[in-house]
Amino acid sequence: MNRKKVIDIMRNNGILLVILLLIIVTGIFERNFLTFNNLLNVLRQVAVVGIVACGMTYCIIGGAFDLSVGSVVSLAGVITILSINNGTNEYLAVLYGLSAGVAVGIINGVLISLINGRTGEAFIVTYGMQVVVAAIALFPSRGLFISGRISPGFFKSMGEGVMPIVIFLGIAAFMEFVLVKTKYGRTMSFIGYNLDVAKMSGLNVKLNRISYFAISGLLAGLGGVVLCSRVTSSNPTAGLNFEMDVIAAVVVGGTQLSGGSGSVGRTVIGAVIIGIMGNALNILGITAYHQQIVKGMLILLAVGMDILNKQIKLKEMAHDKVFA
């Protein structure tokens, strides 16, 4: 029984364990690695990915997918910085950035609801949206980097010091609470597991699904705002390939792509662990491009193991007797 439990834990958390091992090994060889300062720095870096990954987690648990988040990060950044440079009130500027994210999310949600799309359709529609939004982000500055004229204040504080970490963890905690403890979260799981059952249980499936995309858009927008606050500028291609890091964080955390089951908390762990891994790889002298290969393989491995696990579980279940 105990042995079975150990095997179960290994099976369910295989990838996390492998990465942990990597971190420990690096920690042993590199004294600077497991220091408070270094880890804080890593956390600052993963905060933006983490914020966006929280929204993506909702989307995936709700039985959909959002590939447009990377572009939204760019767009929200561009809009916010441009607004501030034009002398808009900084609160309003941030609001514009966030609204752009929500708007993209709502469009995604409405389109996908219209065709009653599941994960596959959601994937390809938001893929198109990714391209569209990326292009829109290029328009205002003709694709050029914009440096922000930022004076100390609300906006500037968003990216300073531990603020990104506070925003990230605060949002994650709130979203995990909503997911686990509230009607909205329960409904999300239900819809993600089985859309038809949810519909036949008298739930408003369409509206709820649109809201998942809207939240994903909102958090991608927030990610963009925090990012450009941190670097005090906006780059219209800042979010390029951003969705890869986000997806990696979610699947390594263990949220299932088939919908219904997952947790924002685990996404936080996924994001942090991937961040630390990246840092470890940097310290070991492995380039960003090598890391891209690792990330791609990581996504495959996480999802592949998840699916193999499920097949094993189903087989085990078939052996168990039906409880009559």
Binding site: N241, Y289, Q292, I293, G296, I299, L300, V303, I307
Partner: peptide
């Protein structure tokens, strides 16, 4: 064979192969 969803498989290999080309 493994029955993984095509979108995530090809997304993963897309990133990895691109990384390879850059490397």
């Amino acid at each position: 064979k493994i029955k993984m969803p095509a979108f995530v498989v090809t997304l993963g290999t897309m990133i990895a192969i691109k990384g390879l080309a850059y490397v």
